[in-house]
Design a binder for these strands. Structure first.
Lengths: 139, 139
DNA sequence: CAGTATCCGTATTGATACTG
DNA sequence: CAGTATCAATACGGATACTG
């Protein structure tokens, strides 16, 4: 048993006593409601590829192929689908130069940059915290 | 030895030896690599229910039933499964009081609180930005 | 109360082939 | 280059029944 687990009782008591009473006071966020339209946005954003694509675009506009190479493991099909979803929510702008051969660039909208900032914070945390997270996987 | 464990080992070695080569001035994030174990963490966190459960727990420890009522639309099956996933990554602690009838409480670990802070930022943004996002849905 | 076991339909995804 | 179309495999998730 890990050190954390041994102290679980103490830990739970500490957290409980520090719990503010706002649980009952403040109404449950809309996202907690099963029918909230935010759920759709959440799913398009947090699908298997959404946040990774947004993360990649945070560095600057990119073409389809470049994006596909940067996001490891994504198929053409899923990249196209993911980009369309992000476009639906106004996070990504698609610009077709109309040339032959095709040249299409994807860029974050101002709204997309706002989202990307939050995504950056989360993905960056996961990455930098992986050693600590992985510690629990073996013991 | 599990496949995951082997991946972790490889991953940690790569990190130690600074194997990754950056394309631009900022290095390509490891999460962009298809084989990065962070991808597993990301998927457990950004599954359909992960972030919502984390969000709910951010307010304080809760029992299984309470959690289920707060997160609208989640089934017992998926709540149990989601909580186990979050436990795997050391974000959530499960404490079974061992009583009859059963009394089990779930709480965020310190690591979970760090994650929840990022999740809060993202979900909160989605919620508050929904009006602007929805504007693009019609015109 | 807090789950687990099983069944089964659906959604998501990958592979492959094809197009302008 | 930047996609789309189609099919097949699988992962996901809900409903129901059951347990200590």
């Amino acid at each position: 048993m890990s050190l954390v687990s041994r102290n679980i009782r103490d830990y739970l008591r500490k957290v409980r006593t520090h719990r503010n009473v706002s649980v009952k006071n403040s109404p449950a966020p809309d996202l907690m409601a099963a029918a909230c339209p935010s759920r759709d946005v959440l799913r398009r954003l947090t699908g298997r590829w959404g946040m990774l694509v947004l993360w990649a675009l945070a560095e600057g506009p990119q073409r389809f192929g470049s994006l596909r190479r940067q996001v490891g493991g994504i198929s053409e099909r899923m990249l196209a689908q993911t980009l369309q979803g992000l476009e639906t929510d106004g996070l990504v702008l698609r610009h077709d130069f109309g040339t032959v051969p095709p040249h299409v660039e994807y860029a974050l909208t101002p709204l997309g940059h706002e989202a990307a900032a939050r995504v950056d914070a989360l993905l960056g945390w996961i990455e930098s915290s992986l050693p600590r997270i992985a510690q629990g996987w073996n013991g």
